[in-house]
């Protein structure tokens, strides 16, 4: 286990009868960072989250939380949680729910009131504080869920599809809130299948496919892993494409040549100039999360 990890999955698998939930997960989730679980629906993200939270018992392997192996009786004292679907008691108002949760978590309402006011302001929830939860929209209930997850000042916050039902402005503020909390040392795990939304929001990505973690990578490495893009003055897909195809890790897209291996960069540029083309620009190509994920899936299916 990595010394600086808040959660470690060590060979953790979960089977629902004969159906796999997640299989053989081995990963260290870094402390004090935002970690994103990325994958298609049913890829195993939610099961992994439930294993971390201790709501499921691994069929094999184990989950280490803060250096201590989890059991079904481990108390989630310093953990905040937002599940995928929320159903609150309908006769509560938003404030009453916060009051009740504060009481259950051993906090006095007035201790958390300032926090609640601040976060409610940020997520535009103030107008709904006295409203009955029954009459609140899905988005409003989601905001309530987000705020309650941070209410007891946890060291780890786990959120399953947290932006469901949020409008773009609030979604932006939500990620602001995550960054703010992360800068205070809180470790955050979020899951999403919306790659565009989660791109550039996390520091560490875990990719799930077919109930396995297929890749764990730092955001920095992900961003710099895209190679280089060379822009030329005309479309070369039909003329130079076959020649360039001989060089591995080189792709031609119209006026663009994408070189993913830096060793070939000079050779490709020489070849382009030698063919009488004008090189207009050479840019580092930032890999986008979606491309990266789709490549991983393609590699996976090639491996069979």
């Amino acid at each position: 286990m990595c010394a600086n990890s808040i959660v470690s999955l060590q060979g953790a698998s979960k089977w629902y009868g004969k159906k796999p939930g997640v299989l053989d997960c081995n990963v260290d989730i870094p402390r004090g960072k935002i970690t994103a679980f990325v994958g298609k629906n049913g890829a195993g993200k939610t099961t992994a989250i439930k294993l971390i939270m201790g709501y499921l018992r691994p069929t094999s392997g184990r989950v280490i939380l803060n250096g201590v192996p989890r059991t079904m009786l481990t108390v989630n004292g310093s953990i905040g949680y937002l599940p995928e679907s929320l159903r609150f008691p309908e006769l509560y108002s938003v404030n009453q729910l916060f009051e009740s949760l504060a009481g259950i978590r051993g906090l006095r309402y007035r201790e958390v009131k300032e926090f609640l006011d601040r976060e409610a302001e940020l997520l535009e929830l103030q107008a709904y504080r006295k409203k009955n939860l029954r009459s609140c929209s899905k988005g409003t209930r989601q905001k309530v869920g987000i705020i309650q997850a941070f209410m007891h000042n946890p060291q780890l916050v786990v959120m399953d599809e947290p932006t469901t039902g949020l409008d773009p402005a609030v979604r932006h503020r939500f990620f602001q809130l995550l960054r703010q909390r992360q800068s205070q040392g809180v470790s955050i795990i979020i899951s999403s299948h919306n790659l565009k939304e989660i791109e550039s929001q996390a520091d560490y990505y875990l990719f799930f496919d077919q109930n396995r973690i297929i890749e764990a990578i730092d955001a920095e490495k992900l961003g710099s892993g895209g190679g280089t893009c060379i822009l030329v003055d005309r479309d070369i897909s039909s003329t130079l494409s076959p020649k360039l195809a001989n060089l591995s890790a080189t792709v031609v897209e119209g006026c663009k040549v994408l070189v993913s291996n830096e060793d070939f960069l000079n050779g490709v540029i020489s070849l382009l100039i030698g063919a009488g083309l004008q090189v207009k620009n050479v840019l580092p190509r930032k890999s986008n999360l979606e491309d990266y994920f789709l490549n991983l899936l393609a590699e996976g299916s090639e491996r069979g």
Binding site: V75, G77, P83, S85, L86, R105, G106, L107, P154
Partner: peptide
């Protein structure tokens, strides 16, 4: 059913409350 299977039940089990 809500208690055993409802996901919202799990938020009550954070913040220090024992099962």
């Amino acid at each position: 059913h809500d208690m055993y299977r409802g996901e919202a039940e799990q938020i009550y089990l954070t913040g220090g409350l024992r099962k």
